[in-house]
């Protein structure tokens, strides 16, 4: 009951932020940045479930984003599917792929799990890069329009592309956060956190560890896939970079930067790491340098991530 009220309070704050933020936008361009933040945050929320709840790392989740993105690019072209349905198809494929590879991969731990997932991600991006006939290779391919904007216009609602995607991505993030918070305070969520704490104790209370890990893996894969689809749809164009190693690393870094233990930590991390390069566009060459330094410094000085560390500081002052 308490937990339920807290959940709605948190979601309310997030919704208010999404609605009110545009009041402070200096230009229409910021709708694009906002939409990008929400999309990244969505995939990071998925990783919070995998890493933060269940304690399993993945360095290959961009592979699922790639499946989602290319499903939206390919399915309308080859199967005549509506882009919206293509997104669902992508999520389905990602879920099935995660189910199939998750079973053997999740038996591994620590570094081995990290490298196995990384291997999956790289194979995925290799396929997307090499199958030129289908994917256009490294140059990428264009993505059909969702048609939502035209539909809204007929209803008399004139929105710019940026505004519309800001709204769509914001709603997707709210739904994603709601589902993740539901899971946190549910039997499955407790089972995931329990196996994170002690696999042996979790199994002796009847938790099927392999099954719970697999659930977390599949759920997070679907999050990444939908985020990949949204990214493809709003850009109208997609390249294999979406499935690349660097994208996987960025996702994990966002999750860990904000605080992988909480949904809102993940969202904060996504916001910072998405916005930072926008600030640094003048110094584009410094982007990698800064990203690398941020990763190291946060892990050394704020190992729990920003949000819990800030929370603790405030808590201490309150005492």
């Amino acid at each position: 009951m308490m937990a339920g009220r807290r959940k709605w309070l948190q979601l309310g704050v997030l919704a208010a932020l999404i609605v009110l933020l545009p009041l402070f936008f200096p230009s229409g361009y910021y709708y694009r940045v906002g939409a990008l933040i929400f999309v990244n945050a969505l995939s990071v929320v998925g990783l919070v479930i995998l890493i933060g709840y269940a304690g399993q790392i993945s360095l290959g989740h961009a592979g699922f984003a790639g499946i989602g993105a290319y499903a939206c690019a390919l399915a309308p072209q080859h199967l005549g599917l509506h882009p919206g349905l293509a997104m669902l198809l992508g999520a389905l494929i990602s879920g099935v792929v995660a189910l199939l590879i998750g079973r053997p991969i999740l038996r591994l731990k620590g570094y081995y799990l990290a490298v196995a997932t990384l291997g999956f991600g790289i194979l995925m991006s290799m396929v997307l890069t090499n199958e030129r006939a289908l994917t256009g290779g490294p140059d990428g391919m264009s993505v059909e329009d969702l048609g939502l904007r035209a539909m809204l216009r007929e209803l008399g609602w004139r929105l710019s592309g940026g505004e519309m995607w800001y709204g769509v991505s914001g709603i997707a993030l709210l739904i994603g956060a709601w589902v993740a918070l539901n899971l946190l305070d549910s039997p499955s969520g407790r089972a995931m956190r329990a196996l994170h704490g002690s696999e042996i104790a979790a199994s002796t209370v009847g938790i099927d560890i392999a099954r719970q890990k697999l659930r977390a893996f599949v759920i997070s894969a679907v999050y990444a896939s939908i985020a990949g689809s949204l990214l493809a749809l709003q850009n109208g164009f997609i390249t294999p970079d979406v499935a690349g190693f660097m994208h996987s690393i960025e996702m994990v870094t966002m999750a860990v930067l904000g605080g992988v233990g909480s949904v809102f930590g993940g969202i904060l991390g996504a916001a910072i790491l998405t916005f930072l390069p926008q600030l640094l566009t003048v110094f584009a060459e410094y982007e990698q340098l800064v990203l690398g330094a941020v990763m190291i410094l946060v892990m050394i000085f704020l190992p729990q991530g920003l949000l819990p560390s800030i929370g603790r500081r405030i808590g201490r002052k309150g005492e």
Binding site: V252, T253, E285, Y286, Q288, L289, M299
Partner: peptide
């Protein structure tokens, strides 16, 4: 050394961060 005893995930991020940092510095 400053991160001694940190969980594996943290150490992975640190060394990947180091590799990105070194790459960034090299291109500069």
């Amino acid at each position: 050394e400053p991160a001694r005893g940190a969980p594996v995930v943290s150490v992975i991020i640190i060394t990947i961060g180091a590799s990105i940092l070194i790459r960034g510095a090299t291109q500069l």
